[in-house]
Nucleic acid binder design. Sequence first.
DNA 1: ATGAAAGCGCTAACAT
DNA 2: ATGTTAGCGCTTTCAT
Lengths: 368, 368
Amino acid sequence: MDETTNGTTRHRASSTVDATTSDLATARRPRRATIEDVASAAGVSVATVSRALRNLPNVAPSTRERVAEVATSLNYQPDPAASRLAAGRTGTITVLVPHLSSWYFSHVIAGAEAVSAEAGYDFLVIGVGTSAECSRLLDERYHLERRTDGVVLVNMPATDDEAESLRSRGVALATVGSYTKGYPSVRVDDFAVGVIAAHHLVGLGHHRVGLITGQGDDPMNFEVPQLRHAGFVQGLADLQHQLDPDLVASGDFGIDGGLEAMAHLMEQPDPPTAVFAMSDEMAFGALMELERRALRPGIDISLIGVDDHEFARVVALTTISQQVASQGALAARALVASMAGASTPTEPVPSPVELIVRGTTGPAPAEH
Amino acid sequence: MDETTNGTTRHRASSTVDATTSDLATARRPRRATIEDVASAAGVSVATVSRALRNLPNVAPSTRERVAEVATSLNYQPDPAASRLAAGRTGTITVLVPHLSSWYFSHVIAGAEAVSAEAGYDFLVIGVGTSAECSRLLDERYHLERRTDGVVLVNMPATDDEAESLRSRGVALATVGSYTKGYPSVRVDDFAVGVIAAHHLVGLGHHRVGLITGQGDDPMNFEVPQLRHAGFVQGLADLQHQLDPDLVASGDFGIDGGLEAMAHLMEQPDPPTAVFAMSDEMAFGALMELERRALRPGIDISLIGVDDHEFARVVALTTISQQVASQGALAARALVASMAGASTPTEPVPSPVELIVRGTTGPAPAEH
DNA sequence: ATGAAAGCGCTAACAT
DNA sequence: ATGTTAGCGCTTTCAT
């Protein structure tokens, strides 16, 4: 039944470690060593090999060592598909992210990948254009749970239902850039980001401040802009200032959007002397517009961004830095921990921000 | 033997399509539908379901349709692990790349991911720091062939041996940014890039031209800098010019490297009036250095980069554009084709480049 | 055109 | 501490 029609048992002499010893059976290709090969070569059962190699308890130290040696000499690696099927775990972490190539997301991915690899997980990447597409993935039809043990959601809102759906299917969840109740989520204090920006600008003596926000067409990730906005308003209020609704323009988190938003702001009857752009990329676009208007950043008008993009220092952009790769890493680490059965932090895991003053912010122009 | 100790057969009435009908057996969780569920609900064997769903021949149209309907209504999706184990194919494409977060690589990944997803492949990402690490992966110990049907190598040299090792293990290969004999590889004509840069600068009347190259510590991807270098020299020679070895500095493909390289060039006794930086990022660093020296790009000194990084237009950098995401997509497409058994292009697949003139290049200063 | 059955290479009870 | 064995859910000959 286990043995095929020939009645011979396949165990070799237990000292037979040499990988070149070829069974009369399959001698076609340089066939991969299986757990059975290791077992017979080590003179133990496959179960023991399995235990020994996965460092499960109840294996004699001497046995464990011998098995490990044999496995190495046979260049044995368990077949992922087989163990997935048998164990029901995939050894895979999946990250769901919009715009794979954008600065922010690629850094998150880099951080998450490093941690996943180190923890021995395969790292799957799925680009999701819209949040609708994301919901579809998180919900039924595409069976995420067969492909992955955990997913990292980057700047994608997951409803409580979606999160619960994942949980019920045994998939762990962690998010970065948005908060899902009951799951580890890494993020900066976006409210504080807004406050810091406001305090910095008003502290420089600016009274008329503008905001380039990031509300785009896709309502994906509405939380971040909303919080930064609220924080900015609060920061102004702290210092007895207000945000004129006319001085708020949306820039879609891109260079072009930033450019247009800045143009819009400068076309106001009473334009701002200082502007807070919610991302460095939008700030870059804004700088282009200022250049076109021959306005000197930091002198004629102040501009502060968020991110500390590699490029910010090239144009001397004052910004509020965040550690993006580290956020991806933290999320992956939380995921690994929760998959290992550890209790996951249900409160948001904070990631630090820091004001970095460069050249694009300066004292308010005297003439007023 | 197939049935467990109880002798009951598990087939339901063939009209039973309702997913809520619970066997007396496993009624624990909302168990996923298996191929058996579909088979019994459709009143056919699992083999037929398997054939029908994968569009294999020898299935009656009516049967195929019925199976498809039942599968949909049961929300059935084959378990990847099971089919991998049984079929020996993984349905996975893996991309091996250094520096996940850098501009170039993240764009390649984005392109490759889109194509992979569209073709129905899972997309695995592995960050490899050094080329040694890459070789290790491509060689024996970590069994890539169990995890993936094909790999995309980004700017990582694969030796013929490594490529052959992959082939013998049934893993398809495609590369971008480097050429491996006998495998599809997508790349720009880096020699032409150098020529274009040289012609542009000399065409503007520059006689003393410098080069910021990218040879770093890790000899990973030596081909690109080497070819661009050679092309640059050739382009100069075309117009009776030479490259002074003193005007060549290495910048490691980073902003800081570019900055230092430019500083080095400008400290020469007879500094260049025009510089070709092999990447936009190095050019950005170079611009910072020029700013520090109060030299106006495009007027006091000309600078041209390569890539057309999103940011290039922000600083009006003249550059030679390449379509990076498209390269990743082309590579993935070639991989998909070769895995489907198509004959793969063994000649390099060219990706276009284009000179984009902006503000950082201009006529050579008159005073000379 | 369809079905029966033998694995694919592991893991996880359950013995011992 | 170790061995036996029954699956995991598919794919794939081989029959029919």
